[in-house]
């Protein structure tokens, strides 16, 4: 399992994918940070964090699209699946590899906050809470991306599919307000990432939301394993 993790991590930086990902996420986060806080002369980071979700929506599919699609296309998954490694181990290893890259990128983006502390006196707790929340949401997005990547051998399809699912999950809250039926609104709100996220941007550390993001991870990774189990029995 560790071998797969190591190989994936390495392959991000042998190909250009890792560098492109870092470039995109760091450049966009820096621009958004400047506009939303420095240019607005405020130390309120809430709009920065909300906008970052949309940056993740674009950037994270870059990391996840190849994880299974490429292996399937090049038939290298045959090596993994006939090795003494469980399907669960394989899925988790790939998840952790993508998450590690994202985690480092997220830390690098966080350098921006130093400027806030230099010019004002922001609440460190709120910023820390937001960084943790952003990390967890990213993990959930990665799990979604892994699931979509396991469904296809076309990387582009995997990226666009992931993008679409995340987009719907982000916008569902906004759409919801147009639905007059309470029960429908209630059920749809389960899938809303944004409504749970708002607590963090408002400065509350919401344990329920943390559990929610972690469960999204588990559900999608579990379903990915099931996809592989099922495929073994051939349809």
């Amino acid at each position: 399992m560790f071998a797969i993790y190591k190989r994936e991590l390495r392959s991000y930086f042998v190909s250009a994918v890792g560098y492109v990902f870092f470039a995109v996420i760091i450049a966009l986060s820096a621009v958004i940070f400047s506009v939303s806080t420095l240019f607005a002369a405020t130390n309120d980071v809430s709009s920065y964090f909300e906008t970052m979700l949309f940056v993740l929506m674009i950037a994270l599919p870059l990391l996840t699209m190849k994880l299974f699609a490429e292996e399937r296309k090049l038939r290298t998954e045959q090596l993994l699946l006939t090795s003494p490694v469980s399907i669960g181990g394989m899925v988790v290893a790939k998840f952790l590899a993508a998450f590690t890259v994202y985690f480092i990128a997220n830390l690098l983006c966080s350098i921006s906050y130093i400027t806030l502390f230099a010019y004002s006196d922001p609440e460190a707790g709120v910023i820390l809470g937001n960084i943790i929340a952003l990390t967890l949401v990213g993990a959930a997005f990665i799990a979604i991306g892994i699931f979509v990547s396991a469904l296809t051998e076309n990387q582009l399809a995997a990226a666009i599919g992931t993008f679409a699912i995340i987009l719907v999950m982000l916008l569902i809250g906004a759409l919801n307000s147009f639905i007059p039926v309470y029960s429908v609104r209630y059920v749809l709100s389960w899938f809303s990432i944004l409504s749970r996220y708002q607590n963090f941007t408002d400065g509350f550390f919401d344990i329920a939301a943390v559990v929610y993001y972690v469960s999204i991870c588990f559900v999608f990774l579990f379903v990915t394993c099931r996809v592989y189990e099922r495929r073994r029995y051939g349809a």
């Binding site: 071998a3 038939r75 090596l79 993994l80």
Partner: peptide
């Protein structure tokens, strides 16, 4: 397998090391 499952971007030794760890 019929089509050798090789990671094209690795060197031979890197690949064999990977298989060594994988197994």
């Amino acid at each position: 397998p019929e089509q050798p499952p090789l990671y094209m971007e690795m060197t031979v030794l890197e690949y064999l090391n990977f298989v060594y760890e994988l197994r």
